[in-house]
Amino acid sequence: MKYFTLTILLVLFSFASCKKKELDFKFSGNIKDSNSGLNVPNATIKYYTYSLGNNVEALKGEAQTDALGNYEVTIERSKFETLKIKVTKENYFKVDESYSIDDLTTENSNEINYSLSPKSWTKFVLKNGMPASAGDELKIQKVSGKIDCDECCANETTYYNGVVDTIVICPNDGGKSMKIFWWVNGNDMNGEEVINNIPFDTTTVTIAY
């Protein structure tokens, strides 16, 4: 009788264990550099869940790409409405994507590939030379370049008044270009700058007026 009971318990435990594995979410994929097309090793992928009516994120899993840019991870299925996946790598712009639980499957691995854009920077050196006065005005209009990051410079017109001696850093996607026009009110000084940003590098543009 004891042997029979033990056998039943083992069968039930095995069934529950298999059932749990079937209900886990598996993720796999590859991450590449959007500029070079090369695989990106050592990128970090984190999985956060949001419950219904709750904006508090909970970290549920984490993975890292191997030398070939591949990753795989398993996270436990729980009661949540939205899954957010955050992909980060030093000197690359982060990727945040959200998925409804209805978009995911427990039957097969959820294969999701990503492209990360390498960072580059334009360093604008703005200097109002002597003689400078409070009435001087420099107008810079940025018309192209990356705008969808926290530290990005907007595509808009910015005014610099009076005595100016400053530096402005504008990030951009590596391998892409950034374009500005600039004018100095009250005289004929003006210009157009097209900056071809090199991945992982800083290009300096000096506007002296």
Rank of each mutant, 00 (worst) to 15 (best):
N35W: 13
N39D: 13
F80Q: 07
G69N: 02
E72Y: 14
V87A: 07
K32D: 12
F25W: 14
L38E: 15
E81R: 14
L59S: 10
T49Y: 01
L59A: 08
F80A: 08
T49W: 00
Y50I: 11
K84Y: 08
R77M: 00
L52K: 15
F93C: 10
N30G: 05
E22C: 05
K46R: 09
A63I: 06
A43Y: 04
K19M: 05
F27A: 07
D96M: 12
K89P: 00
A58D: 10
L38G: 06
L38W: 07
G69V: 04
L59H: 05
C18N: 06
N54I: 13
K60Q: 14
Q64E: 15
N55S: 15
K89W: 01
G29E: 03
P41K: 06
L83I: 01
D66H: 09
L83Y: 02
S78T: 15
S36D: 09
A67C: 02
I75H: 00
E57H: 09
D66K: 11
R77D: 00
F25T: 06
D66F: 07
N30V: 14
F27R: 00
N54A: 11
S51E: 07
A63E: 03
Y47L: 10
L83P: 00
F93E: 10
K19N: 04
D33N: 09
Y71N: 02
N55I: 13
L23T: 06
K32H: 13
C18H: 02
K21Q: 01
G37M: 11
E62Y: 06
L52R: 11
A43K: 01
G61Y: 08
E97Q: 15
K84S: 12
K79S: 14
V73I: 09
Y71A: 04
Y50K: 09
K60W: 04
E57I: 06
K46G: 02
A63G: 06
R77P: 01
S51I: 08
K19W: 00
E22S: 04
G61E: 01
K94D: 15
I45N: 00
T49V: 07
K94F: 11
D66W: 10
N91C: 06
N30R: 14
S98F: 09
N91M: 12
G61I: 02
E81P: 05
L68V: 08
K94R: 12
S28F: 08
F80E: 06
A67Q: 11
E81M: 11
L59M: 08
